[in-house]
Design a protein around this nucleic acid. Structure first.
Length: 484
RNA sequence: GGCGUCGUGGCCGAGUGGCUUAGGCAAGGGACUGCAAAUCCCUGUACGCGGGUUCGAUUCCCGCCGACGCCUCCA
């Protein structure tokens, strides 16, 4: 039996479908399947997109800590994804390919790799399964055929469409009012569509057109509609029903509504997914200037400003996932400062704990550690309240009643959810002495000057090094340095 | 226009019908230092506006103002 931390015996999550926060119970005891809508790899993923990666990463970490055997599936959307149904066959992948002169496959490969790299830099665990839509055309066609056999579809010149009137629950998921859709003119342009909300399952390539990405199908040459890929891949890797589906709030009304419709019809299940979780958006209000200048905010935007990508992870954890979070570089830099100090505390506690363990003394005492653990995990168990969990972390760090071994026992445990890599983290004020003879010589020269109380010379050397970004740290045992 | 979310101290942000009214960053003070830096410790400032319910509201209700989101396949 897996040891469940105190406070994590019962996890409560806010389900979008039922609009209530309730106890999480998996379909199969001890196991959890999670599906997250992945990136469309025609452009770099923004920091906003990455919030939708950090969120399910936190979720799976918490569920794993609670003892569940988690299967995490997220996809790569590397085909189709129309700019709009009104478009005449142009889609994002084809468009990006035309713009850069590369093949759609090249572009998909490049941005897939960049996305994966960004995830790693943010401390996200690797997906257990990472299916690509282009590799699952057969599954998608099969699902459309099933829907067709059941009478949920119709074919027009443009392609195969799902008739939403054949699924009476269509408006339930997102609490849609279909009259409104009509009056606001959602999805215009395909005149032959029977209902405004009907969506494409398979798009046909117009006669005389040759696309980079197209496949033969029972209906003719073309490519799958966007929504069908998630249903098809989730079914293949997680089964006809599964526990958790996540995504950004923008997907609720269209993408996930359509996923539910086609899945519940084709698979004859209800509800298709046990718990739907949606994260709110990052509010770029403070950075609209940079957006309008055409600069996309990505992980590298942080690195360029000397901000550790993990600072963004800390930043993410400071706000609740269902709340909009105001992004500014200053706010992320502030999170970086907090993280650096937290790592410093963790490393010293870790080292002290190791030293204590070596001498056989100072073992962590559960009686002292568990109250903190309980509050930490209980915060996360309460619909993933990471900000509150982080507050408990700081209380533990500053607590006088915890020994270094206690503190490290707590932090090592908490880091399973935080994901800062504390067990392997280097001290943030790492000494670089010895790595550069010229600087070491200057430091030695300054030490001599100080010994002779020639502070004019010692301060001059310090200022010169500071000017080139070298920070000196004077300690009772001597001076070390590092690059700031 | 319709629907919805939100407005907390300099900033980011939890939370609660009354309790020592989170946490981080910044700021001020202190320790340390030859002076600094780094580090550690301490401290202050809050609940958009106007009504209402209540013994008591930042927390519940109504209105207003403001911000943001969705309604156009965008995380």
């Amino acid at each position: 039996m897996v040891d469940v931390p105190p406070g994590l015996e019962e996890i409560r999550l806010h389900d979008t479908r039922t609009r209530e926060t309730r106890r999480f119970v998996p379909l199969v005891e001890g196991r959890v399947g999670i599906y997250t809508c992945g990136p469309t790899v025609y452009a770099p993923q923004t920091l906003g997109n990455m919030r939708s990666q950090l969120f399910p990463d936190l979720l799976r970490r918490v569920l794993a800590a609670a003892g569940y055997d988690v299967t995490y599936v997220t996809n790569i959307t590397d085909v189709g994804h129309l700019v709009s149904d009104a478009d005449d066959g142009d889609d994002k992948m084809e468009k990006a390919a035309a713009a850069s002169g590369e093949t759609a496959a090249d572009i998909a490969a490049r941005y897939t790799e960049q996305w994966a790299d960004d995830r790693r830099r943010l401390g996200c665990l690797e997906p257990d399964v990472l299916p690509r839509a282009a590799d699952h055309i057969a599954e998608q066609i099969a699902m459309v055929e099933t829907l067709e056999a059941q009478g949920h579809t119709y074919v027009i010149d443009d392609g195969v469409y799902f008739d939403v009137t054949t699924f009476p629950r269509y408006s339930e998921f997102a609490d849609l009012r279909l009259d409104d859709l009509e009056s606001t003119g959602r999805i215009e342009g395909i005149a032959e569509k029977r209902n405004p909300a009907d969506f494409a399952l398979w798009k046909l390539t117009p006669p005389g057109v040759k696309r980079q990405q197209e496949w033969d199908s029972p209906w003719g040459r073309g490519f799958p509609g966007w929504h069908i890929e998630c249903s098809a891949m989730a079914t293949r890797y997680l089964g006809t029903t599964f526990d958790v589906h996540t995504g950004g709030v923008d997907h609720i009304r269209v993408h996930h509504t359509n996923e539910v419709a086609q899945s519940e019809c084709a698979l004859d299940v209800h509800p298709w997914v046990g718990t739907w979780l949606h994260n709110e958006f990052l509010d770029l209000g403070g950075e609209k200037m940079s957006k309008s200048k055409g600069h996309v905010l990505v992980v590298d935007s942080l690195v360029e400003r000397g901000i550790d990508p993990l600072a963004y992870r800390y930043f993410f954890l400071q706000a609740h996932y269902r709340q909009k979070q105001a992004f500014t570089f200053d706010a992320v830099a502030a999170a970086g400062t907090a993280l650096r100090r937290l790592v410093g505390h963790a490393v010293s506690a870790r080292d002290a704990a190791a030293a204590g363990a070596a001498s056989g003394a100072d073992a962590p005492d559960p009686a002292r550690v568990d109250p903190y653990r309980r509050r930490f995990w209980a915060a996360l168990a309460d619909d993933l309240n990471a900000p509150q969990a982080l507050a408990v972390v700081w209380e533990a760090v500053r607590s006088d009643e915890l020994s270094p071994a206690d503190r490290w026992a707590f932090l090592a445990d908490a880091d399973r959810a935080l994901g800062f890599g504390l067990a392997d983290a280097a001290a943030p004020d790492a000494d670089e002495s010895g790595s550069d003879p010229r600087i070491d010589a200057l430091v030695a020269e300054r030490a001599t000057a100080r010994a002779e109380r020639d502070f004019a010379t010692s301060d001059r050397i310090r200022d010169e090094l500071a000017a080139e970004g070298i920070e000196l740290i004077d300690t009772p045992t001597g001076t070390t340095w590092r690059r700031a």
